[in-house]
């Protein structure tokens, strides 16, 4: 994203989704002395764009959020803002000849990334196709509601879909507030404090990978993951969009663990690594297997590679 663009937005008084709420609130509260809670609302209202904050400002914001979350969830959160690692561009591989459609990945993701349990939000959808199916690009011909006693079901194959981390992400282009962007390591992220919930990005995504919080997310206290990243799995708000971030809070570390979905997959169908490292398992997959990407004709250039190992 160009600097100029950001400045352009930030020059305007419009800052974020609570503008109206904030303005009304601001009028009444102007007359009153600020309480603690008021200050928090006020600060979040005037929070700068992620790229415009310097270190101190970001630290302040994070401290404020940790406070808010503590009040809301009764737990101590750690919110990281770790930057991309130099020389790393993340890529993902999925071996369709191994996947058995067991959905372990779906729920490992939910657990790791604090998705709402009610209303239910999943970042991964596992699609079931009939074997011999012509082409997997037409999701409508598959179902994600299959529920046999055991998988794999005779005569079917499975294709998990999540954010494809496009090099050329249409969702980013349409965002009116620049609340979503592609990071240097290739991960497209969302700033939940800048998202106004217009859902243009959801309409633009050809993979149906983005999810909307229709209500305040609910997660049982004992299941909340308090190890978070600002651009990743920290708790979301009502009215914001969220999506897979390749587990940014886990992977953007040295050393960094694999994404939760990779770690849980019982058949080892999921591969992850640095596309710029010739020794990585993702590069091995691309070089030794016949890989394809979803809806290549749209020129989104996903960094999510499907293949059949055999």
């Amino acid at each position: 994203m160009s600097k100029k663009n950001i400045n352009h937005i930030c020059d305007k008084p419009l800052r974020r989704r609570t503008l109206l709420k904030g303005a009304a609130f601001g009028l009444t509260s102007l007359a009153l002395p600020f309480g603690n809670a008021d200050a928090s609302v006020w600060e979040s209202f005037f929070q700068k764009h992620f790229h415009q904050m310097n270190k101190d400002e970001l630290q302040k914001v994070i401290a404020r959020l940790e406070n808010e979350y503590k009040e809301d969830y009764g737990k101590d959160f750690n919110i990281k803002s770790t930057k991309p690692i130099d020389g790393v561009k993340f890529g993902y591989g999925l071996d369709l000849s191994r996947c058995i459609g067991c959905r372990r990945c779906v729920y490992a993701c939910v657990e790791e990334n604090n998705q709402s349990r009610d209303p239910q939000i999943h970042w991964i959808s596992v699609l079931e196709f009939e074997k011999g199916h012509r082409w997997v690009n037409v999701f409508e011909e598959a179902t994600k509601y299959y529920n046999p006693h055991t998988v794999p079901e005779e005569g079917y194959f499975y294709m998990p879909v999540q954010c494809q981390q496009c090099e050329n992400p249409p969702c980013v282009k349409v965002c009116p507030t620049k609340a979503t962007w592609k990071e240097r390591d290739g991960i497209t992220v969302v700033d939940y404090n800048w998202c106004i919930g217009c859902r243009y990005c959801m309409a633009a995504c050809p993979y149906g990978a983005r999810r909307f919080n229709w209500a305040k997310p609910q997660i049982a206290r004992e299941e909340i993951n308090t190890e978070t990243h600002y651009l990743g799995n920290r708790p979301r708000y009502k009215g914001v969009v969220e999506k897979c971030t390749f587990c940014i809070q886990r992977t953007r570390e040295e050393p960094g663990t694999y994404p939760a979905c990779v770690e849980i997959c019982p058949v080892g169908a999921r591969k992850f690594g640095n596309l710029l490292d010739p020794e990585s398992e993702i590069r091995y997959s691309i070089e030794h297997k016949r890989v394809f990407r979803l809806k290549e004709d749209l020129n989104t250039s996903p960094k999510f590679y499907y293949f059949f190992a055999t």
Binding site: I100, G101, C102, R103, R104, V106, Y107, D118, P119, Q120, H122, S125, K144, Y145, Y146, N147, P148, H149, T150, V151, P152, W214, A215, Q218, A220, R221, P266, V267
Partner: peptide, 23 residues
């Protein structure tokens, strides 16, 4: 490789109902 039990399917959109709940 032995078949295994899948975890539950997602809730269908038309069955999705939201209830504000105690923890």
């Amino acid at each position: 490789y032995k078949p295994i039990e899948p975890l539950p399917p997602p809730i269908r959109p038309d069955e999705l109902k939201y209830t504000k709940s105690e923890d």
